[in-house]
Simulated assay, not measured.
Amino acid sequence: MFPTALTVVLVLLVILAIVAVSMTVKIVPQARAGIVERFGKYRATLPAGLNIVMPFVDKVRYMIDTREQVVSFPPQPVITEDNLTVSIDTVIYFQVTDPVSATYEIANYIQAIEQLTMTTLRNIIGGMSLEHALTSRDQINSGLRGELDGATGKWGIRVNRVELKGIDPPPSISDAMEKQMRAERDKRAAILTAEGERQSAILSAEGSKQASILTAEGEKQAQILNAQADRQASILRAQGEGQAIQTVFQAIHDGNPDQKLLAYQYLQTLPKIAQGENASTWIVPAELTKALGSIGGAIGTVPVDGGGSKKRVDMEAPVVEETEDDAGTQEAVEAALEAAKDAEGPGATPKSRPAPDAE
């Protein structure tokens, strides 16, 4: 069954109504702006949300993104003040603040920003040396942003930030700079090593100095103590010798020795004569009795009581260390020696008993 003419007309009207509604209602996404033209002329800017336009008359020509955008430009060759070519790539952060100006004031604002960035960058880098350019990125960024923001303001675009991604000098310059930096690091390392050795030498010298001072102080104290010990030992030896002399002297006078004792002592002394290194030969007299008699006559009669010291020496008493009476000890020793000489001299007249005749 073929449709009637009325049915066809109704279908066409429905389709036309749907098309009209779709052309009338426009939905603009968030952070977008729609540019509406009527018969090729700007009419209005549609905000985000639901908008109504005149169908078949008004047309949304452009949809402008009002968010901040990031554009990275490829590396561009730039000549520095010292005639060195470096490659610089940049990153631009910008935002469309006026969609109408961005649409009708410039045909392609992205390309315009790129070209403006390159020309401005050449002007700035051209007045700097390579070392200055490598160490002045903040200065370059600030100058480039100011120039771009001033030039793109009439296009309804605000440049928020400009960053230099990299500044690449030629390979030969890079090698030379690397060698220079290596030399600087070697120099600093050598300086630090020398400083360390200097400090080590100073500390070692200070340590040696302190050690020498302490050693000298120790030797001084040791010498003082040794001297004091020698002094005490000499005093004790002198006291011991004095007491020994007194003891021997007293024993001689208490024993009343005679010629036989002297002969016996002579016989005991004779073997000791042969003990010397040079006494390889010695002769015993044939008339030993006459020799002993002549020795006794030469010595004289041994007194029974020589009139010497009667002081009894306590053999068990310890030797007392006296450091204050050195002069008294020396005088006692000298007195004992003088008394012994007087008793044994030929002019002595002590009481004695006659010696028996030698057999």
Results as ranks from 00 to 15, higher is better:
194 A>K: 02
203 L>P: 06
203 L>I: 03
207 G>M: 01
208 S>T: 00
208 S>F: 00
209 K>D: 00
210 Q>E: 02
211 A>P: 05
212 S>A: 04
214 L>E: 11
215 T>Y: 08
218 G>Y: 03
219 E>P: 04
219 E>D: 05
224 I>T: 14
225 L>G: 15
226 N>T: 12
228 Q>G: 06
228 Q>H: 08
230 D>G: 06
230 D>L: 06
232 Q>G: 01
234 S>Q: 04
234 S>F: 02
237 R>A: 13
237 R>V: 04
237 R>W: 05
238 A>I: 05
239 Q>H: 09
243 Q>A: 13
245 I>K: 15
246 Q>V: 05
247 T>W: 14
247 T>A: 13
249 F>R: 14
250 Q>A: 09
251 A>D: 14
252 I>L: 14
256 N>C: 02
258 D>L: 01
258 D>I: 00
259 Q>V: 06
262 L>E: 02
263 A>H: 12
263 A>Q: 13
264 Y>P: 07
265 Q>I: 03
265 Q>D: 10
266 Y>T: 07
267 L>Q: 04
267 L>M: 03
267 L>D: 06
268 Q>C: 00
269 T>A: 08
275 Q>M: 05
275 Q>T: 11
277 E>R: 03
277 E>N: 02
278 N>V: 04
278 N>L: 04
282 W>I: 09
283 I>D: 12
286 A>E: 11
287 E>R: 10
290 K>D: 10
290 K>E: 10
293 G>H: 09
294 S>R: 11
296 G>R: 11
297 G>W: 10
300 G>R: 08
301 T>M: 13
301 T>F: 06
301 T>Q: 15
302 V>M: 14
302 V>Y: 11
